[in-house]
Structures are given as C-alpha cells and as structure tokens.
Amino acid sequence: MVWFHHAPAVCSGVFGRSVGKGWPAMNATGQISASGWEHFHHDADIGVCGRGRSVVEAFEQAALGLTRIVTDSPIAADSQVEVECRQNDLELLFVDWLDAIIYEMATRKMLFGCFAIHMEGLALRGSLWGEPVDVARHAPACEPKGATLTELEVARDDNGLWSARCVIDV
C-alpha cells in the first residue's frame, strides 16, 4: 500500500495567524457549487454533511462542518496531526474519521481547520492542521462527543457528486 502526504485539501481558509480578517463567517453552511458542508436539523444534536466531487472531498468537507459546530472563528494551521482509520464499510469509515478528529480535539485540546485525506480501499489516512483552543478567541460553543449512526449516509448522486452525512452527539 502506498500512502501519500500532501498539502491540506480542504481548509477553513485560514493558514497562519495573519489570516482571518475578511474571512466570511460560516454559521451553518460553507457551501459552494460542487463541494462544501452544511449542518442539518436534529432535535438535540447537530447533523453534519460534507459534499464533494469525490468521497475524499466529501469526508474532508464534513470534517470542516464538524469544526464549525464548535466555533465560527478562524483557526490557525500551526500544528499537524496524523490519524488512521480502517473499517468494514464506507459509512462506518466516515463515522470513524469524524470520531478520530473528535478524539484528537479532545485529547490535544485543539481545533482543526484544514484537512487532507488519502484513501486506499476502506483504509484512510488523514492529516489535520490546527492550533490549541483559545477560549477567548474561538469562543467554542460546544464539545462534540462522538459521531452517531443516525442519518448516516455516504452516497453519490446522479450528477456524480458525493455526500457524507451523520448526526454528531454534542
């Protein structure tokens, strides 16, 4: 198996501490025409959906949506963290990917704003770029506990656009 390390594929638009000024606030959606993320309705928790031209892009966009559950503020890409996931099917792999990010957020007390994935079959290696939580600057709203199997779906539509979605317990 060959793994590639490459530059972050999906970012909140923030690289380095000088960025942020002029960056548009993303409250509930970061959609662009072919790829992006959005939050969807759930009574107690929050649904997150990523879309893209590939599974990888949809997963990366969903990761951004996960971060935007916590904060609307810019996130500096100061540190890089690697994660690996392996599952028996694509949907559980998506849940595992989000859980891996949540684990790194919780144990490192960090927020991540840039994501890059490489996939080989049902094995995933992801790179996360971010910075330690700054309560004053990030004003984190809530803490994701884990990705659930509720509303879980990874699918491709008739236009070839991929989406990956599930509810996050917060």
Partner: peptide
Amino acid sequence: GHQIGSEFLK
C-alpha cells in the same frame, strides 16, 4: 464515556 460509546457503537 463518549469514547466508550463511539467505539462500541461501531
């Protein structure tokens, strides 16, 4: 608890 729940759910 969150991690136990996440792992066993999958």
